[in-house]
Each structure stands twice: as C-alpha cells, then as structure tokens.
C-alpha cells in the first residue's frame, strides 16, 4: 500500500516536470514571436511596405526586398516543383524497389541534412563562377531550389503513397495507362499533401539566408531580370542587424518575415489536417 502511494508521488513529480518542459516550449515561442511583433509592429506602415530603403536601410521601406523575395520564391519553385514532384512520382509510382531507389532516397536524405551555408558555397562556385551566373536572381533560385528539393520530394512521395491502391486499380482497369492514372487520378488525390509540402518549402525559401548571401547578392533594388542581383528580406534583416544600421527597421523587417512564414506554415498545417480528415472519411 505504502509502495503504491510512493509510486504515485514519484509519478506526480515526474509528470509535473514534463508539464514544465512543455510549458517552457510554449513560453519560448510566445516570447520570441511576441517580442519581435511588439517591437516591430509599430514601425509597420503602408510606406514601410511600399517604399525603397534610403541611406542603406536607415530610412524608407522594404519594397524591393519584399518583391525580390516573391520573385525568388516563384523562380525557385518553378525549378523545384517539377523536379521534386516528378522525382516523387518516379519513386512512388514507377521505380522498382532496389539499389537505384535506395541511392536516390539516401541522396535526398543527405541533401536534407546539408547546412545552408554549404549550399551557398556550392551555388557561389558552381552556378556563379562555373556557369557564369554571378550574383543573380537565377543563381539564388537554382540554389534555393536544391535547398527545398528534399522537402518537396519527401512530402510529395508521402502524399502519393497515401493514395489508396484501389484508385489506381480502378483507373487501370478502365483502360487508362499508368501515366494517365498518375496525372488524372493519383496526383489530384495527393494534391493537398503535395501543396502542404510546397507551403513549407515557400516558408523555407522566405527565411533562407546563408545559402543566398553569396548567390543572390545584396543589391537593394527590385531585380529587373533573372540576371540581376537581388537582396531578399532575410538578407536585408541580416545586414540591418549585423551592421547595426537601424534597430527599428530591423524589428519591422523581422515582423514581416515572421508574418509571412506564419501564414505559410499555418496554411500547410491546415492542408495536412484536411488531407488527413479526407483520408479518414474515405477510408
């Protein structure tokens, strides 16, 4: 009897530590997001979002960086989506399990583990020097595409594998070819999951910095072409903070970054939960 009360007491203490751990996690998040927003929101204004920076960012706004970030996201995804989704189709629908598939999977896993700065060095030397792209939107987009490729491959493959086998069988038995089955049945059914992966990738590109500093460059005006150097929001924040140019502007830039990333991540989470719900009701 005494033993069991002791057991209960131990459990009570242990569980309160678990609660404390979880509470710390939540508090840390609230403090970080709350502090940045608290300091940064007052500086947000229509002018801040629609003006060019003046005096190296001390005055003015962030319009060029905002536009450059959007350009970068579009250009990187234009490269990464076809490659990533088609890779996933290959792995999930076409490939025979074997050495080649294992090799591709382990390459993607390795890519996912490589730090941003290594991608930055690679982009600088390969796209920048060897292919002659220099510091440009195209170089940044190619580098960022490689950064998010593993994410897109993994999320798309998971989404494809979650499509019930009966869909494929139904389509094939109606005389559709494998490719028709993939494009008209399997991919549409997997689209919420794939889309969620894309949202996460967009978030990653928006926040990416180390891979972009030496590939995209830091010219603080709107890129006029793919060959223009273009400073994105993340690099702008780094420059403002590191060179101590303007703390209020840095806070406001960080606020814009956090809001963008929050929107993208919450959309992804919403898509995933909807995809799961659909699966449950259909299954």
């Amino acid at each position: 009897m005494q033993r069991s009360t002791r057991k209960k007491a131990v459990q009570g203490v242990a569980f309160s530590f678990l609660w404390i751990g979880a509470i710390i996690t939540i508090v840390v998040l609230l403090v970080i997001v709350g502090y940045i927003l608290y300091q940064g929101v007052p500086g947000l204004s229509w002018e801040f979002l629609t003006q060019s920076p003046k005096a190296g960012g001390k005055e003015g706004g962030i319009l060029p960086m905002l536009v450059n970030t959007i350009f970068l996201v579009i250009a990187s995804l234009a490269i990464a989506i076809p490659v990533g989704v088609l890779s996933a189709v290959f792995l999930a629908e076409y490939a025979k399990q074997g050495r080649i598939v294992r090799l591709i999977r382990s390459a993607a896993e390795n890519l996912a583990g490589i730090p941003s700065i290594i991608f930055g060095l690679f982009g600088f030397i390969f796209f920048g020097k060897i292919l002659g792209l220099g510091w440009s939107l195209l170089n940044g987009a190619l580098t960022a595409a490689i950064v998010v490729l593993p994410t897109i491959m993994r999320t798309s493959e998971e989404a494809l594998l979650a499509v019930p086998q009966s869909y494929r069988e139904g389509s094939l038995s109606l005389g559709a070819t494998r490719w028709q089955t993939v494009t008209r049945v399997v991919l549409p059914a997997a689209s919420p999951g794939i889309l969620a992966g894309l949202m996460l990738s967009m978030g990653r590109i928006v926040g990416e910095t180390a891979a972009l500093i030496f590939t995209l460059g830091s010219a603080d005006r709107i890129a006029q072409s793919l060959m223009d150097s273009a400073r994105p929001l993340s690099v702008h924040l780094y420059i403002l903070a590191h060179e101590g140019i303007s703390t209020p502007k840095a806070f406001s830039t960080a606020t814009v970054l956090i809001i963008l990333v929050l929107i993208l991540n919450l959309t992804a989470a919403f898509l995933v939960s909807r995809a799961n719900k659909n699966r449950k009701t259909k299954g």
């Binding site: 403090v31 690099v235 970054l257 991540n265 992804a268």
Partner: peptide
C-alpha cells in the same frame, strides 16, 4: 503544442539571431 513546434521550426534562422542579439 504541435502547432507551436511547427511555428518554432518555421521561424527563419536570421530572425532567431536577431532576437538573440536584442534580447
């Protein structure tokens, strides 16, 4: 908690650095 963790994972590293510098 899972949402909170996802948000933490999504915050750009440069923002973490800036937060660290300021706070």
């Amino acid at each position: 908690l899972r949402r909170a963790i996802e948000i933490l994972a999504g915050i750009p590293s440069v923002v973490y650095g800036f937060f660290g510098l300021m706070m």
